[in-house]
Design a binder for these strands. Structure first.
Lengths: 228, 228
DNA sequence: GTTCGCCAAACTGTCGACAGTCGACAGATT
DNA sequence: AATCTGTCGACTGTCGACAGTTTGGCGAAC
């Protein structure tokens, strides 16, 4: 495995699709704010920097466009997606829509296996929350929510969630920090688990509404500070 | 000036790039069953047939992949998406999830303008339902549901709906016919309108659950007959 | 008759190149 | 001084070509 930050250092990269590698590089660069929101990306320059031709760069860019990390203007090229407060609200509203549905579907056939798996994941999140690896916290959080949706049994629903996952990473990265309080994260997720274990759809809905609402308010407030 | 970027009244100079044209061609070919589900598509052959090079064909294929009309296997190429009953169920379940949410959001600020627009669309659907242009029926139906979601005011939600729209067209085309009874279509949509106009979230949910449920059962049953 | 291995054909992944188009800048004009 | 216009540079859209891989068929071995 070669270094992850640069693709075309000195060794030529093989085997894995160039498209995927370029896509990973671009994703990382966008998430880590190496490219500013709204910045224009030149295909030729990217190809030069990464030591590949324009074809894989174009395909990777199109892939990231479909994931909402880039936007393209005809004959002008690709730009890093810039999110405003309204778009952010929409994303979290859609997330709420998907997770509500998943919780409702899941509470119907919740069992010990699923509960155990989710419980272990929350424990992992608690461990990570103590440290200062911010991106790891985000990823483990997303893993939990993805598990909930996966357990709901609708693969197309899971795909829809994966689609907005990249946008979630982007907007969380934009405000530069996760939830301030580590305890609040864990308790919030324990509440989701309790609601599922209770078997009551009403409690599930309350729990997920509260959970997503807090996350949305936090991010929207954060983006407001960033802009202002 | 009334038309600064237009020549004449409605003729806008727009040179559609080859990618879009190829994408449209492929979409039409897939929807109209010109390509069988699961069939492998050769980039070179498509390029030859369409008189273009492989680059636009590849990009168009990638676009259709992101829309769920094609699937790609590394180093093997693109295949026409084949849907089974389970995937079909998942798609309609996700559609229900999205439309429920949109109805709930929309019923909050439903007004005469929106009601009028939706009413006119249903009337268009009634006119079309009398004829035998099947694809037109499907399109006008989708227009109605898209309007509902657009009126809900969440653009990301609308994008999620647009994403599954292509898959909906595909699976409706697979069973080869729309709802048998023209009257049932119109009444079913009038019910949705009445529910929205009533302002009661409960009635909205009932109406959309019934509406999508009927459509799903119809399609799932249809695909069962096709396979069996 | 079946299975394995090899070979040729076709295909995908990637590359470099060309042409048309867009935006910026300098010069001309009012 | 401000605006219009012509030119220039850079970039995207598209193309044809090459290399490595996959595929399907044919023949040999069991």
């Amino acid at each position: 495995m070669s270094s992850s930050n640069a693709i075309g250092d000195s060794t030529v990269i093989q085997q894995r699709n160039l498209v995927e590698q370029v896509a990973d590089y671009l994703t990382q660069a966008i998430i880590s704010q190496k490219f500013a929101p709204g910045e224009r990306l030149s295909e030729v320059q990217l190809a030069r920097d990464l030591g590949v031709s324009r074809a894989p760069v174009r395909e990777a860019a199109r892939l990231l466009e479909s994931r909402g990390l880039l936007v393209s203007q005809p004959r002008r090229g690709f730009f890093v997606r810039a999110l405003d407060a309204a778009e952010l609200n929409d994303i979290f509203d859609l997330r709420l829509c998907l997770e509500r549905h998943a919780m409702a579907r899941l509470v119907g056939d919740f069992d010990a296996d699923k509960e155990g798996a989710l419980r272990r994941q929350v424990e992992v999140m608690c461990e990570v929350a103590a440290g200062d690896n911010e991106s790891r916290k985000i990823e483990e959080d997303l893993v939990f929510h993805r598990m909930v949706i996966a357990f709901a049994g609708n693969r197309r629903l899971l795909k829809a969630f994966d689609d907005i996952t990249h946008e979630l990473r982007l907007c969380i990265a934009l405000i530069g920090k996760t939830h301030a309080d580590p305890d609040s994260i864990s308790t919030s997720h324990w509440l989701l688990l309790d609601a599922l274990a209770s078997g009551e759809p009403g409690r599930c809905r309350e729990a997920i509404d509260y959970h997503i609402g807090v996350a949305r308010d936090y991010v929207v407030q954060g983006i407001g500070e960033t802009v202002a």
